[in-house]
Structures are given as C-alpha cells and as structure tokens.
Amino acid sequence: MRGLFAFLLLLVAAASPAAAADDGRFVERDVASSAFGPIHVTLWLPPGYDRDTGRRYPVVYMQDAQNLFFLDRSNFRKVWAADKAALGLIRSGKVAPFIIVGIDQPGKERYQRYFPVKVPSEPMREFIAKGAGPLQGDGYVAFMADELKPLIDRDYRTRPQPRFTAIAGSSMGGLISIYTLAERPDVFGKAAAVSTHTPLIDPDMLGKAPGLAATIQGSWRNYLYHQLGAPKGRKLWMDHGTATLDQYYAPYQSVVDAEIHRLGWTDKQFRTRVYPGAEHEENAWARRLPEIFGWLLSDWKP
C-alpha cells in the first residue's frame, strides 16, 4: 500500500500544472496607431510572470514579429527563436527575466516603415521616396515610443525607464532600431541592430551611380554626429555577416563604427561584430541572438 500511495503521489505531481515546465507564455493583441491603423503585436511573458505578481520586468521591443517565434507565421519558414534565446539566458542566470514585444511588419511597406528618415540628406531622401513611396520611419518611431510603449507599461508589469527598455531588429529592422535609439533616448536605452542595412538602398544601385556610396557614408557621419551623441548610459550592438546581402555592409559599417567611437562610445557601451560566412537570414540571426542578448542585457541582473 505504501508503494501504491507513493506511485499515486507521483502521478498527481506529474499531472499538476505546477510541475509542468514554465517556458513563459504568449499574448497576441492589436494596438491602435494614429498613423497606420491597428498593428499586431505578440508578447512573450517570461517564466514566473503569472506567479510572482510583485515583480516588474524589463522589455525588449523587436521588429518583424512574424519571424521571431512561430514557423507557421514566418515569411521563410525560419525564425529567430527569440523566446528560446531568452529562456536560456534567464535560466542560466546571465540576465534577469524580461518581456519581449514583437511588432508585426506591414508586408509590402516594410522598407518605408523601417526607413530612418533623417539619416540621408533631403535630396537623397526625396530620391528614395520617389522610388519607394512615402517614408514612414518617423511615424513608426512615434508609434513605438508614444503609443505602444505606454500601453505595454499600463497593461503589464514593466520597468519603464530607458535603461530597462531595449529595441532590436535585423536588416531594415536594424536601421529603425539604431534610429530609434538616436531619436528617442528618453524612451529607449539599448538597441541591437543586426545585419543592419547600412547602405540604405539596394546595393545594386550603388555601383550604377558614381559617388552615391560616398554620399550615404557622409550621411551616416553627419546624422550620428548631430543626433546620436555620447552614450549617456545607453548601449548599442551592431553586426553583420559576409555572405549574401551582408557582403555589401562592411564599407558602411566601418564608417558607422568610426563615428560612434569618435563620439565617445567604448567597448562597454558599443559592441560591433563581423560573422565570417554568415548570411542575411533568420537562422544566422538565431545562432547569435544569445550572444547579442547576453551582452546587451548584461546589466539587467537577476
């Protein structure tokens, strides 16, 4: 009887929700935007969020939510597995538990929405808009800073200060992430710009217009000098690979790196990396996301 009783206790424990692994949970919702209409977001709430109701959490806002978590929603049947990267770091005690807010990209208007409007000169901006359509980056930054974040801070237990608020994205999503860090340091204190599309336009165009590459590099110097400024408590990660689209990024990233260092950012505040052989795609970004999060969020102590 004693053995049977012990066996029954094991069965009850195995069936108990408390015994199940807590991998966090997802929440999906639409958020109103004055500039764009409803925008769909997917939140990942970390393990313990529902149990430890007295705790507040830092937040990472990420672009291209379709490609962050779920294969069946992804554009290329590949995902960043952002929740898995976060889980590994949280369970190892390297960073404090944090919330991820994934923001859907709009499809055919993704380029315009993620474009850093003030980086190029006005003539260059007009040239780009003529081919691509109205550039939406400023409106999107305002949505994230003034509409989405206040809602998240209201409805969830966040730590709302800039040092506990990060933004991340890849390619054009990397552009809008560094742009947001520069434009709204009152809201965002950390950014990860992964495989950042620093050429701003299709690299094929650069070889057809003499002087265009130098113009874009000069635009980066000018913008960063006037808008990014000194770190003032912020942290920034930038990287790129060397294959597929990433093979074009080095000349522009080197200009960005030099200017950021000239502004006083040291290795403690600014980390820039090159991944030889890495391609411009989600599996490559997933492989290095634990390293990215681990460095960027290292001061979010458990």
Rank of each mutant, 00 (worst) to 15 (best):
G211T: 11
G211L: 12
G211E: 12
L212F: 14
L212G: 13
L212V: 13
L212H: 10
A213F: 09
A213R: 15
A213I: 14
A213K: 15
A213N: 13
A213H: 12
A213S: 15
A214D: 15
A214M: 07
A214C: 03
A214H: 04
A214I: 01
A214E: 15
T215P: 09
T215K: 14
T215L: 15
T215I: 06
T215E: 15
T215S: 14
T215C: 09
T215G: 12
I216L: 13
I216T: 07
I216V: 14
I216W: 04
I216M: 11
Q217Y: 09
Q217S: 13
Q217H: 07
Q217W: 11
Q217I: 04
Q217V: 02
G218P: 01
G218M: 01
G218E: 03
G218W: 01
G218T: 02
G218V: 01
S219I: 01
S219H: 09
S219E: 10
S219M: 02
W220Y: 12
W220P: 06
W220C: 10
W220G: 11
R221F: 01
R221S: 10
R221A: 00
R221M: 02
N222V: 01
N222Y: 01
N222S: 14
N222G: 04
N222F: 00
Y223L: 03
Y223V: 02
Y223W: 10
Y223C: 05
Y223Q: 03
Y223T: 03
Y223H: 04
L224R: 07
L224Q: 05
L224Y: 06
L224P: 03
Y225A: 09
Y225V: 00
H226F: 04
H226N: 10
H226V: 00
H226Q: 13
H226R: 14
H226P: 00
H226C: 00
Q227T: 15
Q227C: 09
L228P: 05
L228H: 05
L228W: 09
L228A: 06
L228C: 07
G229M: 04
G229S: 01
G229K: 00
A230F: 06
A230H: 10
A230R: 12
A230G: 06
A230T: 08
P231W: 11
P231Q: 12
P231G: 12
K232H: 14
K232G: 13
K232I: 03
G233D: 10
G233Y: 09
G233F: 10
G233Q: 08
G233W: 07
G233M: 08
G233R: 05
R234N: 11
R234D: 13
R234C: 11
R234F: 11
K235C: 05
K235H: 07
K235Q: 05
K235N: 02
K235P: 00
K235T: 06
K235M: 06
L236W: 11
L236K: 08
L236Y: 08
L236F: 14
L236D: 10
L236R: 05
L236S: 11
L236T: 08
L236E: 11
W237Q: 10
W237H: 12
W237L: 11
M238T: 13
M238F: 09
M238N: 08
M238Y: 09
M238I: 15
M238W: 09
D239T: 02
D239Q: 04
D239H: 06
H240T: 05
H240N: 03
H240V: 00
H240G: 02
H240E: 01
H240M: 03
H240S: 08
H240Q: 05
H240Y: 06
G241Q: 05
G241P: 01
G241M: 03
